[in-house]
Design a protein around this nucleic acid. Structure first.
Length: 485
RNA sequence: GGGGGCGUAGCGCAGGUCGGCAGCGCGUCUGCUUUGGGAGCAGAAGGUCGGAGGUUCAAAUCCUCUCGCCCCCA
């Protein structure tokens, strides 16, 4: 009976345990977050989905600025010769670059790349702008669109064009650049915890997974409910590779020319994909209050005789919540019944639903329902704003706690080859295992199990004395493996 | 890189083997009755069957070419 009721709530969404990818696509389309565009691999982010993006973008932007960074904007088009300067970078990105070869009727002398990332064009400008040690550090971020010609696409997770934020900084010393890269990693982690309610691991990428052209790539990794890891952010310590090829030099206090030390870092609209997967359930989307476009939806329950009165009171309720600083919305559409609205707002992930009908009015209460627990509470009308504020905070915390518990439960440790391979016959989540540190071994593990090293912890854990879970040789460190998106 | 599926009304699809009036469900619109977990009745609108060419008295259907999209596996 219980289960039947559960199913009745939503039609048209595939159950998560039946087909997770189908569920993911269904939620995106039914909640109107995005739609396929009539262009290969591209999507349209619809108003509701874009509202989520704006909320998380603004929250992140605030943190980026609070740490001394400024926003700027660089061109979409990058001349081929710029892109070709850093060899490893070029090799890494050329398979994915889209080109402009013609302007109007004129064939271009040099093709222009649609930026797959902006190091090339930004470094070119930094070479011009940076003259003296007094110009450093340069701390610039840009919000932009990116084009990467991916073979396989998936809404929000991998599309030909996507939105992101990319920070590009230049520093006087190696240490300062490393500190910057780590500071941003920390910032990303906190942001995902506090705003998105997504717990993450922070760590370093192995050589195999490093950003093309970087000295070191730091990563933020989350776990999806299907047991696959998703990289939700990266921060690169670029060293002096780019400085040397783009000739970004400055005059130090010692009156000598030095190359700058650089970082770059970014997160993308992929975060919305993570939000959907980490928190969603069979009823649809479940948004953490801090990024919910509608935090509290007011649904009036109207009957003919009391309609006018209830509607007026519902209106007043929504207004009062807005004044109290909540993103509240009155759903007074006449053409849908309350039951329909309940389902729709659950599907769209609104954290709180406030029902107001004649019985509530009579008793002086509002019937409040939490999206995350479906818990129903009769809240005294005069206390509703304060209650809603507190409850939204509680929901935010509870959602993080639930996701953290899942991450913890699905992080396992094994210390030998057999257990390791056995685990990866399924999708065990993160697996912590001893590793020898050799790329060929890592390649072989990837070939045989489909799992890759997602990260090595920032404080490497000594695994000497153990055998490598892959090749059986002498292990050096504990690495975290997972099958990834 | 390999494999598979699809293109017909806004959305989801049937029809295709066997050529013969362009269909169904949902949605939309109008009206009335309704409204505490996806309402009911009555009526209406909506089409270059992805595109081009061919066969035929006749093509969504058969043939050739072509464009596009999606999914799965590595």
């Amino acid at each position: 009976m219980e289960e039947q009721d559960e199913k009745k709530f939503v039609k048209d969404i595939c159950r998560r345990d039946v087909d997770f990818s189908q569920w993911y696509i269904d939620v995106i389309r039914k909640a109107e977050l995005a739609d396929y565009a009539p262009v290969r691999g591209c999507m349209v982010i619809r108003p509701y989905g874009y509202a989520i993006w704006e909320l998380l973008r603004d929250a992140l932007d605030e943190r980026i600025k609070a740490t001394g960074h400024e926003n700027a904007y660089f061109p979409l088009l990058i001349p081929e010769s710029f892109l070709a300067k850093e060899a490893e970078h070029t090799e890494g990105f050329t398979p994915q670059v889209a080109w402009v070869t013609q302007g109007g009727t004129e064939v271009l002398e040099e093709r222009l790349a649609l930026r797959p990332t902006s190091e090339a064009i930004i470094c070119q400008m930094y070479a011009k702008w940076i003259r003296s040690w007094r110009d450093l550090p340069v701390l610039i971020n840009q919000w932009a669109n990116i084009v990467r010609w991916e073979k396989v696409t998936r809404l929000f997770l991998r599309t030909t064009e996507f939105l992101w934020q990319e920070g590009h900084t230049a520093h006087r010393t190696d240490d300062e650049a490393r500190e910057e890269a780590l500071k941003i990693l920390e910032l990303y982690g906190d942001f995902m915890n506090e705003i998105l309610a997504i717990p993450v691991y922070k760590g370093v990428k192995t050589d195999r997974e490093r950003f093309p052209g970087a000295l070191q790539t730091y990563t933020v990794e989350a776990l999806m409910p299907d047991g696959r890891a998703l990289q939700t952010g990266t921060s690169h310590n670029l060293g002096q590779h780019f400085a040397k090829v783009f000739d970004i030099t400055y005059l130090e206090e010692d009156n000598k020319l030095h190359y700058v030390w650089q970082t770059s870092w970014g997160v993308t609209t992929r975060l919305i994909g993570a939000l959907i997967m980490v928190h969603g359930d069979d009823a649809g989307l479940k948004l953490p209050p801090r990024v919910a476009p509608v935090q509290a939806v007011v649904v009036p329950i109207t009957f003919e005789k009391t309609k006018e009165d209830v509607l007026a009171k519902a209106h007043a309720l929504a207004d009062e919540l807005e004044v109290a600083g909540l993103r509240a919305k009155l759903d007074d559409r006449d053409e849908y019944k309350p039951g329909w609205k309940f389902n729709e707002w659950e599907l769209r992930g609104a954290p709180l639903r406030l029902e107001l009908g004649p019985k509530d009015v009579e008793k002086g209460v509002v019937t409040a329902v939490r999206r995350d627990t479906r818990e129903k509470t009769a809240v005294p009308r005069d206390k509703i704003a304060a209650w809603a504020k507190d409850t939204l905070e509680a929901i935010q915390g509870d959602m993080l706690a639930a996701a953290s518990a899942y991450l913890k439960e699905n992080t396992k440790t094994v210390d030998n080859h057999d257990d390791f391979y056995l685990l990866f016959e399924g999708r065990p989540g993160f697996v912590r295992a001893p590793w020898c540190g050799e790329t060929p071994c890592e390649d072989q593990i990837a070939d045989e199990t489909g799992a890759t090293i997602r990260f090595i912890p920032l404080e490497p854990e000594d695994a000497r004395g153990k055998d490598c879970a892959g090749c059986g040789g002498k292990a050096k460190v504990w690495a975290y493996f997972a099958k990834a998106y």
